[in-house]
Design a protein around this nucleic acid. Sequence first.
DNA 1: CTATATTGGTCAACATGGCTGACGTAAAAC
DNA 2: GTTTTACGTCAGCCATGTTGACCAATATAG
Lengths: 166, 166
Amino acid sequence: MADVKPIGKALFLREEELRRGIELMFFAYRDFTGEADSILAEQNMGRAHHRAIYFIGRNPGITVSDLLAILCITKQSLSRVLSGLMEDSYVVQKPGASDRRQRLLYLTATGTALESRLTSLQGRRFAAAYREAGVDAVDGFQRVLRGLLDSDTIEQIAQQDQTSDI
Amino acid sequence: MADVKPIGKALFLREEELRRGIELMFFAYRDFTGEADSILAEQNMGRAHHRAIYFIGRNPGITVSDLLAILCITKQSLSRVLSGLMEDSYVVQKPGASDRRQRLLYLTATGTALESRLTSLQGRRFAAAYREAGVDAVDGFQRVLRGLLDSDTIEQIAQQDQTSDI
DNA sequence: CTATATTGGTCAACATGGCTGACGTAAAAC
DNA sequence: GTTTTACGTCAGCCATGTTGACCAATATAG
């Protein structure tokens, strides 16, 4: 097998490298979400609830349509989740001050508690990975992940960063 | 706001950094799988079919239990998916030579065609991201992703690499 | 050779979380 | 005053995960 053409060898290595990325992405995402999933299961919630709680916590007072734009799901799907979260008092809604059709979403104390529990769990996993890998690796990690995004998503994230009340 | 304590500022930045990672992971995974999902939807398949096809293509002749170990789902869930794939002639099974209880899984020509279509789609996305980000970034990316894995997953991947017939 | 363990499949029932389509209501905007 | 927008809701469908029970073929250990 030593007589493989260099070009073939290069292509093979390239495909291996790409497959490694694909697989790593699959396993990492699964393990990354796994821990939070078990906590959520205890409260009879799923990943969809987590996402809603996370982004409401991150953007207090967000409107339903803005949340829809972030999550990219149908309003029926989100509505089902939000109804559950409000019934169990993780989330409350207030009418918008300027536009009273809007229902601005906020976490309750319970909601905030759950959100920070979940986020600190996932954050610890990231912190450990970052620590092991080193600062330069973190930069590369984020650059590659950004490169995987759709262009719409990139714009969306950029806008969010602008309007966020940091 | 210039009188924030340095320690508070550092913690804030740290949390921001961790949240950035969490969010990037969510968006990147969604966009990364999105394209393949649409192709799969055309063939009335979902992500579960994709995973099965991918790992059978990657490990021709894999047993059902080994595939189960990779996917970490119940055999009932996998069985449903495999039945569909065999009915539509994407996958065939042959009895194992040494252990005839085993059913070794292989892709058909149709299956291989679909697998490579999907993989090259996702591969192109990775290739573009890798190209933009640069070689060093790729290394960092993979190091951080590996750091996010559960220890069981790490062992599993290591074993796979050993036994793979490269 | 027999007992047990392993590999794999199957049926039934259920939950979650996507989706579509249709319809309603309140408020803003023109 | 009409139209558009923001949001909700009802009904139903599909994919994919779950548990539990049960069965068949075969390998393996005693």
